[in-house]
Design a protein around this nucleic acid. Structure first.
Lengths: 282, 282
DNA sequence: CGGCATGGCTTAATTTTTCTGACCCTAGGT
DNA sequence: ACCTAGGGTCAGAAAAATTAAGCCATGCCG
């Protein structure tokens, strides 16, 4: 049973490592499961090459059946959870979005629909909504309904901002770097400092929200996502000393596994988030 | 995942013990899984009563989704096994039938279709063919194609048979009893010894084939299933000293999960078994 | 009406299975 | 020639199943 899940995930995602991530186990476990399955069948499901695995003809023939079956199972789990707690809306999103964009909007949502509970699960990558039982998924991406068109630009504490007048000033200041969005600095520099070789120097953070706090504490200049620092900018705890803003290639988008029926809690939450409820941060 | 299987089986079969049997685990494991599932949901799926469990409204609402999904998964496994080993036919049957009815026919089948391998799995109860990957199921029952109309009657070794002339003689002879078919003696006595209180006395066997061997060794009189002792009767190692034969309420029947396509190995084996191939036991 | 057996679920301690984490190995890309 | 990405392998740790007892209503029988 677990072996079947491992096979299906590995076949669909094209690798044992990716399957292990989706299943929340280590690649070694996937290896063992697939091998056990192949042993019991007496036939190979994957061809092992040095740079990964490739499905055999047999594996490709039976994959659609398994994918369909596990999709049906995922849907059943979703249905079960929805029936068991009809007034709970489960949202999956990035940790940074959860803390910096969603969290400030929650009081407004609660006031607007007090009977609905909102459960937020932070994760690094968008979940497969056919499998994981979330009602809404909020990520930078290409699918779904656009919630915000986001821009990046440098921000820092007011005291530091006073020392910045041109983009060139950044060469000599500590630049806070988020490990997941490390390319943001390069994207912005390509527009604001064309032709120059800009290499940001400064501490690296694995939590974007922590980098934002450090920027507010005056630790350096952060390449901000506009949507995620709106609160700090409004409060004046962060400032944007330079005018150059670069649009992110992917907008902040919200999507759901299935079409939402109007009036359903998940649909009401989705509508409220798209309408910008609570955008006026205190 | 395993918890979902446990819930589905328990809900469909109406009890944790039955679910444990189908899943091949102990009732304790099913209890633990269902409880874990209910804890995570924050809602009860079963009502516990002193004489078993009953589905809650929530459980009943979501059961069909899970049953359908697991059926699809079972079918996918069947498909996978069929694709991986197309020339292997998997048969599920009772241990007694496997040894006493099927086994003597295998040489004939092998001669008739040498390229087909036949795999026999013995089990006490018919499997759920939507879940367990067997091609054919051969049991006493009401479903499927009739293979043999079976009768029960006393048999014993020739030396003992010489001492039996009427049914009443059995009162004073050891009667071999199969634990799974212990009611056979009563069924036969109701016809052969009407109005008399016949209680068979003698050793109890959990393996019918062993009881047959013991009968051939002269250990006593066995209530035989005609189809299962045909070989011994033909060889003369067992004799039927009394003329009374009682038809079993259920015939020996063969069935498959899905309709068999002509020419398919499973279909050819099914046809051969129904045609009585190899009935002439050496 | 009470004692006792019964069927079915639960619980706790033990054993078996599975997963992890750190390593190795191979082949392609730089 | 090195580095990286992806699988494979192994001993030890975590999780699951088993075993065996316990519980609690029901039903049967004296």
């Amino acid at each position: 049973m677990t072996a079947l899940r491992a096979f299906e995930a590995a076949a669909r995602l094209g690798g044992f490592a990716a399957a292990a991530t989706e299943l929340g186990v280590t690649p070694g476990a996937v290896t063992a499961h697939v091998k056990a399955l192949e042993d019991r069948l007496g036939a190979a499901l994957f061809e092992r090459t040095a740079k990964g695995v490739r499905l055999t003809a047999l594996g490709a023939r039976v994959l659609p059946d398994f994918t369909a079956a596990f999709d049906a199972l995922g849907l059943a789990v979703h249905h079960l959870r929805a029936e068991a707690a009809p007034q709970v809306v489960h949202i999956a999103t990035l940790p940074a979005i959860a803390q910096l964009w969603l969290s400030p909007r929650l009081p407004g949502l609660r006031a607007q629909m007090p009977e609905v509970a909102i459960s937020i699960t932070a994760m690094e990558a968008p979940p497969n909504l056919k499998r994981a039982p979330y009602d809404l998924s909020l990520f930078y991406g290409d699918h779904g309904q656009q919630v915000a068109r986001d821009h990046i630009f440098p921000v820092c504490a007011p005291a530091l901002a006073a020392r910045i007048t041109t983009a060139e000033d950044l060469h000599h200041l500590p630049c806070l770097i988020d490990s997941a969005w490390s390319r943001d600095w390069a994207s912005w520099a390509a527009v604001a400092l064309p032709g120059q070789d800009f290499t940001p120097r400064g501490p690296v953070f694995s939590l974007y929200a922590l980098a934002v706090e450090e920027a507010a504490n005056g630790a350096g200049v952060l390449m901000a996502h506009g949507a995620l620092v709106a609160g700090h900018l409004a409060r004046g705890t962060l400032m944007a000393p330079l005018p150059q803003r670069v649009a992110l290639p992917q907008a902040l988008r919200l999507w759901s596994a299935r079409p939402l029926r109007p009036g359903q809690p998940a649909e009401r939450v989705a509508r409220a988030l798209q309408a910008g409820t609570g955008d006026q941060i205190p």
